[in-house]
Nucleic acid binder design. Structure first.
Length: 235
DNA sequence: GGCCAGGTCAAAG
DNA sequence: CTTTGACATGGC
């Protein structure tokens, strides 16, 4: 149900279409096959570990967890915090994230007996609310878990998405839920499209977002970062 | 050496 | 309701 509070406008050369951007990105870069992980539990662990952290720092942490046989809900929930901290040190915020991983794993066990398939049968919005009630799981992490681990059609918004939209001229309500609705309103209800689109936005963000020394009128990008008037030809 | 990354939470203003 | 600080490592 559309929310009247979500008023989003475009400025610049022409109307901005969510669908056009997806088509251009897909044509330019092709499918990304996200999320890079071995199974849904690993997806969820990765979603927590990558919070405000480069994926290159997350990978060694996942490997270390795997090597220490800590990559199951039960072992993660029961391991000494010190062991977790050691394993995930490379991912940064390691004390905080160790606690988050353990709390989340304990929740998985308590709510669903550690059965992710069972968890995934929960209605989407109810599951989302439950995830958000866990300390350390915010909207992006929750939605990443829903989309990439539980197979729910939920569009993930991240810092790249916000920056890119700002750059192509989007103004107005740019908070998480409004932007999420913008995408969900304009796309077919299709998990694969949601998955690819978010992956492509991250790719675009990495490859283009900070390297264009053009001028910017973007009010969303952080001070000091550069934007350009158009990204792909269309926007 | 400085900047920043696939955020989140709590404490102020 | 909006802004700010803390959390931390590793790559460029």
């Amino acid at each position: 149900m559309p929310d009247k509070r979500c008023r989003i406008r475009t400025r610049g050369p022409g109307p901005f279409l969510v669908v056009d951007l997806f088509n251009e990105l897909m044509a330019a870069f092709g499918p990304q096959a996200w999320w890079p992980a071995d199974g849904p539990f690993e997806v969820m662990v990765g979603a927590i570990l990558t919070q405000n952290t480069a994926w290159t720092n997350v990978e060694p942490a996942i490997v270390a967890l795997k090597k220490a046989a800590l990559l199951t809900p039960r072992s993660l929930a029961n391991a000494p915090l010190a062991d977790l901290e050691t394993a995930i040190r490379s991912s940064g915020y390691y004390r905080q994230k160790a606690g988050r991983l353990r709390d989340f794993s304990a929740w998985l066990l308590q709510e669903w007996g550690g059965d992710i398939d069972l968890m995934s049968q929960e209605p989407t919005l109810r599951l989302r609310t439950k995830l958000l009630n866990i300390k350390g799981i915010g909207p992006e992490t929750a939605d990443s878990i829903l989309l990439y681990a539980a197979g729910k059609p939920v569009f993930v918004i991240d810092a790249y998405t916000i920056r890119i939209l700002g750059r192509v001229g989007l103004t107005g309500h740019t908070d998480y839920e409004c932007l999420q609705r913008l995408f969900e309103r304009n796309l077919p209800l299709d998990i694969e499209i949601y998955r690819e689109y978010h992956a492509l936005l991250v790719l675009l963000g990495k490859d283009f977002c900070r390297r264009r020394p053009e001028k910017s009128n973007c009010s969303i990008c952080p001070v000091g970062s550069r934007c350009e008037a158009s990204l792909l030809a269309a926007v």
